[in-house]
Each structure stands twice: as structure tokens, then as C-alpha cells.
Design a protein around this nucleic acid. Structure first.
Lengths: 242, 242
DNA sequence: GGTAAATCGTGAGCGGTGCTCTCGAATATG
DNA sequence: CATATTCGAGAGCACCGCTCACGATTTACC
């Protein structure tokens, strides 16, 4: 049926792609709140109301851009991890570096994903959660690999740090996550992994959003390498070949 | 001279305070981007242009609210740490809990400080950096105390984790920070402290901005307690009395 | 091939925003 | 008391998101 899409449909897809491209530019140049359908229309050489033939609202355009950004970040992370040497540490480091580099290259789009919510806009969970979990899913995979490489270890000792028993409810929640993702690592390690996950984005946030204070680090990348080692150590991934 | 400020000046200060109060409400209710001078004027029962007699622009109002928010967060943290038992772990935990609780109670204002920058708005560093460093300064103090309590330790071993020598430039940067804050802890521990700092706000960000996914943790506070222990361990602050 | 239906761009229009300017009234200062 | 300063009102400019009625074009159907 839809072998050769009708010319009109082709034109429509081209126009939508063009709107996304302009929207991406506006987003990168001015930031999320400055994204304006009227400006997109101007750039497109069309009257403002015409854009509504292709995009229902500003929020929908924002959602499309959010999904696109999540996808791009996920692709970058996947590519970086795939290209990295096989040791858990190198794979984790590749993931972390990919996140940081994309964030620094696309601060506005990164802010759209991990910054404060845009006023009045709420990302619809149905469309954004799936692409939004790609990074953490990949991180979980690396933890799985590291855990397997180390031969599983004892069930009580998950590698490092304060053991301690978990509150029952918390353990149950972690168990649910474990099942959903099909993981075999113990819940204590999973908990550490989640903290590493938020810690990674915390460090990237601080750098991208300028929380460290300007001029604090002459070579932020060097400091980030240190962060990588600290985070990796938290989940029992030593720097040497593991 | 300004013993009894002129009645007009009193009225002016009252009006400014009222504008801030309304702005705070708008911010809390609608979020940073929804903050509108016209809405403030309406609430104030005055025509929109009149507000400009007191506040130069929307950005200035935003800056005032940023400073106010930083101050309030700093006060909460100070109060919580002061009221906590004297062990480094308890003081650190009190700091972390205070940050989280304020963030959850005031998500919009928290987002204004630690989320993505509001579009088109850049906080002037002169006014915001000083109140913005209170939390990290307090954290540094706790690390100092913990370091002192432990008797200093050896200069090479800072307590935990991957030692490793630091790159020269990075060590120099950290040394500068150490001097500026008048710290005695070794730079390796300082580096770990910075990571803990960003890790703390990363975890709070994830919870406040809903990055974990809704319903993931039935008791987020319990998970946060785990995060506290993990972060504390990173800077060599054991849970037991130190 | 001709006709009916779906699509699309235009332009006007509504209510909202930040911000500027002028003007008259109220207030403080000499 | 006269002068100078402060302040609120109102009009206005340019922008925003979004809706609607209207022709022109293109598609689909018979």
C-alpha cells in the first residue's frame, strides 16, 4: 500500500523535518523557553498559523524535540560504549564521557531533558520515558557485565562500601526494578548503581549549568576523569582491567 | 542620618516586599517561566507599568527571588546542621536531608537555583554566587571536622577509595580552592568532597524533577538515607560515631 | 475526465507578555 | 509656600500562543 507515499505526504514529512530542524536551532541558540512557533514560522517563510497544520501546539513541538534529544543522547552513548574496550571500567568511562560531551555540546537540549521543567510544559510520559531510559539501561548492562566478570562474588558482599541491610520496603522496590530490567546483580549493588547514575548526571549538571563557579577548573575534563574513577569505584569497578 | 526612614521610603520597602511575596507565590505555583510582572501587578492591584517603579525588569525580580531562595536554603541547612548531633556523619546527614526537604517543599524555587537556566535569563554572578556557596561551604566545614576528628590520617591515604596521583594542573586547581576556603584537608579528599557535593544535588534533582520515574520508590526518603550513607562513605565518614 | 473531498497557506483577531513613555496627582524638600 | 521628586494611570509597541473563516490547490473517487 504505502509503497510510494503520495507527494503531498512526502512534502508534509519534509516540512515537519524542517520544523524540527529550525526548532532544534532555536532551542540550541536561545534555550527552551525562547522556543517560539512564530519564530519557526518566520524562519520557514510562512505565516504563523500555517505551522499549526503540522504541529498541534508549542508543547507538542517541545515533546518532539525532547524525544529527539533523548534518542540522540542514547545513540551517542551506545556508540561510545560499543566502541570502547571491553573492560567494565572502560565501558563505564565511555558512557560517562559520552553523556558529558553531548551535554557540553548541546547544553540547551541537555537542559531540556535534565534541567528544571519548562514552565507550563509537562512532558507526556508515554512518549518520553522509553527513550529516556536508554542511558540508565545501558549503565545497568555494564554493571551486569562487571558483576559477571568478577564471578558473581558472594551474595553478601557486593564489592565495596557500607553493606548494611536494606529496609524491607526499599528492598522490595529494588527487587521490582531488578525484575523489570531482568538483572542478576544483588539489590545492594543495584542501589549503588542508581546512586552512581544520579551522581553522574549531578556532576554533568554542575559543569553544564555552571554550578562549580567559572574558572574553578582549568581543565574540567581532567576533573571529570576523577569523577569517573570515583563513581566506578562505588559500584566495584576498578580502574585496572577487571 | 537614616534613623527614621521617610514614610515614603517605608512604603516603598513595603511595596517591594509585597512584590517579592507575590513573586514567590507565582514562582511556587506556576514555575519560573510563568512568573509575570503583569500578574504581579494585577495581584498587587496596580497597573502593570507601576511595578517598574520598584523593579527594573523581570530579570531583576528573578534575581531577587534567586538570592532569597539561596538564602532560605542556606538558613535551613545551617539550622539543621547546628541542631544535629556532633558526629560528622550526623552533621552530613542533616545537611543532606535539609537540602532534600527544602527542595521537595519548594520544587519551583529549587529548580530556579539548580535546574536548567531560565530562557533568556542569566543570573548575575555578583549577587548570586555569595549566597549560592553557603551549602558547599558548610559541607567543607563538615569534612574539615571529620578530618580533624580522625586525627588527620596520613597524607597519602585520605580514607577511602582509589588513591592515585592527580594530574598536576588539577592538583593546582584544587590547591587554589583549598586556599580560598582555608581548608586543611588534603586535595584528594577535597576532590572527593566536590563529587559528593554534586552527587548530593544529583540525587535531589532526580527525585524533585521526577527522573527516577514515578512510583519507583514507595518511600523515597528511605532510599535517600541510603544515598546519604553512600556519599558519606565516599569521603570517609563512617556511619557509626566517628 | 470530471466532480467531490481533503489539505494547506493566508490573514484577521483574541488575549496574553515585557517594556517604554507621557501625563497629572500626590508627596517630600527647600 | 513654592519647587522638585516620586508615583500610578493609561496608551502604545512588538512579541507570544492559538483559533477561525476563507480561497487555492491537490488528492481521491466515480
Amino acid at each position: 500500500m504505502a509503497k510510494t507515499p503520495t507527494p503531498r505526504e512526502q512534502a508534509r514529512q519534509r516540512t515537519i523535518a524542517e520544523i524540527l530542524r529550525i526548532g532544534r536551532e532555536q532551542l540550541a541558540k536561545e534555550g527552551a523557553a525562547a522556543l517560539s512557533l512564530r519564530a519557526v514560522a518566520r524562519e520557514l517563510g510562512v505565516v504563523s498559523s500555517a505551522v499549526y497544520r503540522y504541529v498541534a501546539s508549542r508543547d507538542e513541538l517541545l515533546t518532539l524535540l525532547v524525544v529527539e534529544a533523548y534518542t540522540e543522547l542514547g545513540d551517542r552513548v551506545d556508540a561510545a560504549v560499543d566502541a570502547a574496550p571491553g573492560t567494565p571500567f572502560e565501558r563505564f568511562a565511555a558512557l560517562a564521557r559520552a553523556v558529558r560531551e553531548w551535554a557540553l555540546a548541546e547544553p540547551a537540549r541537555y537542559g531540556l531533558l535534565f534541567g528544571a521543567p519548562v514552565p507550563g510544559y509537562h512532558a507526556p510520559a508515554e512518549q518520553t520515558t522509553a527513550p529516556g531510559t536508554r542511558v540508565v539501561a545501558r549503565l545497568a548492562g555494564i554493571l551486569e557485565q562487571a558483576w559477571a566478570v568478577q564471578g558473581g562474588g558472594s551474595a553478601d558482599d557486593d564489592g565495596a562500601g557500607p553493606g548494611g541491610r536494606l529496609p524491607a520496603q526499599l528492598a522490595a522496590d529494588l527487587e521490582t526494578i531488578r525484575r523489570e530490567y531482568g538483572l542478576t546483580i544483588p539489590v545492594q549493588l543495584l542501589a549503588r548503581g542508581i546512586t552512581v547514575w544520579s551522581g553522574l548526571f549531578g556532576a554533568v549538571n554542575f559543569e553544564v549549568f555552571g554550578q562549580y563557579g567559572r574558572g574553578t577548573f582549568t581543565d574540567p575534563a581532567a576533573y571529570f576523569e576523577l569523577v569517573i574513577r570515583q563513581l566506578a569505584a562505588q559500584v566495584g569497578i576498578p580502574e585496572g582491567p577487571g
